[in-house]
Design a protein around this nucleic acid. Structure first.
Lengths: 186, 186
DNA sequence: TCTAGCCTACCTTCTGGTAGGTAGAACGCG
DNA sequence: CGCGTTCTACCTACCAGAAGGTAGGCTAGA
């Protein structure tokens, strides 16, 4: 079970750095210290691997969201922590969040994995929608706009800012892009 | 010269649909109707091809920006047309703009191509900065914020919205995400 | 005569994936 | 208890196809 977890870990790191087409089973085998054929024992095909990666990533998201909710007093604090989460996923400019990385290589994904990505974004979007609604109520997030639309815009902004910053390996691009959103938090 | 243009055209379409790692010289040869070795005659390596693609794409951008400037009376109109441009690049949810598509497969790019992408974004950013500054002056774009930051946020938003919409092959994701930005235009 | 543009044929390396086998732990059962 | 079976996790060895790229030759036009 330990090997499987290590494979998933290596696969996630590789996918976030090189894209889904940017690493092979041979690479994973090397990273974990087993032979290529043994990787196929755990994940028969690359599609199986991708599907389980997204499943795992979605689970981690739910855990993160709970942790943010538990640690935050105001909606503004929640939003700020979510932005920090995307910033952290950048790994200083070297990696993307798995969602962005896999979206880019969409054509190499199965329908199942694409659906899972959509669900991932839906979870984030729903969470952000609630945050913006609460933020308008408790006054910790200013500016006009419907929570639903603000949430969609924020998610796109965070993903786009990540992509930009990673391209130039410069986290300042991320900070520049999310500046106006951060400025809305009291 | 005609063949070379056709190759660039096919390469751009493929890169925007499948990513830089998602098509091969053999694919291009098939698309254009020549043999694989002949593609190498025009572009010795894939890196050469990528570099020229970005160069061409940047040129097209400058043309587009001039056209938008010429056709628009107000800053609001300019911004609206730029958003429409990114929406159009989506191809109904099937393609990304080249900038987003290549950024995703960053690790397969040469330093030259990465620099060219950075320049492309810098051009868009500078143009948007001017638009936001003029928009504040002529009152056709509302909301607080410094033009420079608004420009960075808008670019990230447009790219992120594209990536999202393409993943789900649903242009409504794009429209949802850019809604708040459009709402700032008088 | 030189060159641009194309060709056939070939190379090496890597890809995802399969076939078939082995050592050892776990299990059912008389 | 001991014996055979089954399962897990790994292995070596292999496959066909595709990748990027090269060598060298043909042909038509400047």
């Amino acid at each position: 079970m330990e090997t499987k977890a290590a494979l998933l870990q290596a696969a996630e790191q590789s996918a976030r750095t090189f894209g889904i087409d940017g690493f092979s089973f041979a690479d994973l085998a090397r990273a974990v210290g087993i032979r290529k054929a043994s990787v196929h024992h755990h994940f028969p095909t690359k599609a199986d691997l991708a599907a389980e990666m997204v499943r795992r990533y979605h689970e981690a998201l739910l855990t993160d969201l709970d942790a943010i909710d538990a640690a935050s007093d105001t909606a503004g604090q929640r939003l700020r922590r979510q932005i920090a989460r995307y910033r952290f996923a950048l790994g200083g400019g070297k990696t993307l969040c798995l969602c962005v990385a896999l979206s880019a290589g969409r054509e190499s994904l199965t329908a199942e994995a694409i659906d899972a990505l959509a669900e991932y974004r839906q979870t984030v979007r729903a969470w952000l929608t609630e945050v913006f609604a609460k933020g308008a109520a408790d006054g910790t997030i200013i500016g006009p706009g419907q929570p639903e639309k603000d949430a969609a815009a924020s998610l796109a902004l965070l993903e786009g800012a990540q992509l930009w910053a990673r391209t130039e390996m410069d986290i300042r691009r991320f900070d520049d892009a999310v500046g106006p959103l951060l400025a809305r938090i009291i």
